[in-house]
Amino acid sequence: MARVLINFAHPALEKSRMHRQLLMAVKGMQGITFNDLYEQYPEMDIDAAREQDLLLKHDVILLQHPFYWYSAPAIVKQWMDLVLEHGWAYGHTGNALQGKYLTNVISAGGAESSYQRGGHHEYTVREFLLPFLQSAILCNMHYAAPYVIYGVHKMDNQDIKEEAQRYRKMLELLRDDKIPLAGLPALNTMNQVLQLPTTQPDKV
């Protein structure tokens, strides 16, 4: 069973339709650790020891957040700055995170078509997430394909609920080792997991 950690960051959850639903869908899931950064550190004072301890206890680390300005909300950066210490996460002796999988779970307002050459945002989401990819590599981790929910602004409540269920399904597959983790970096997005044949043939 893969141990999954969700580091969640939303500074104004009360204003977010999508993440509220995502949270509701994953709430209480067995084997998934949900770590709400803004709730835990409202004064932005990250407890690095606690966070490092959490990282050590998990195999897959998901950074779940809205896609603010092609990146993550401020506390995610703060978290990276303080938790991924030299000598622990990277550097000659820094191999605490060796072999773990890291990626982002993001919601974006725009459609997938706008994140490409000639599109409104010109670049792909994966390109925008380059700093996360390289950070993972520096920390001897694998950067798995990000899980991206596009077009949130145009979704109605029903769409959002369905997205939340898909997210939950994906997490179950990850947790229950239905898909080999080693294949994750090669995917385009982690959403594709839902279409892959699972290693054990028991479908929902």
Binding site: A108, G109, G110, S114, H120, H121, H153, K154
Partner: peptide, 11 residues
């Protein structure tokens, strides 16, 4: 929502 296609920046 008021526009036909998404020409507004929407990160």
């Amino acid at each position: 929502r008021g526009e036909a296609d998404d020409t507004v920046p929407q990160p």
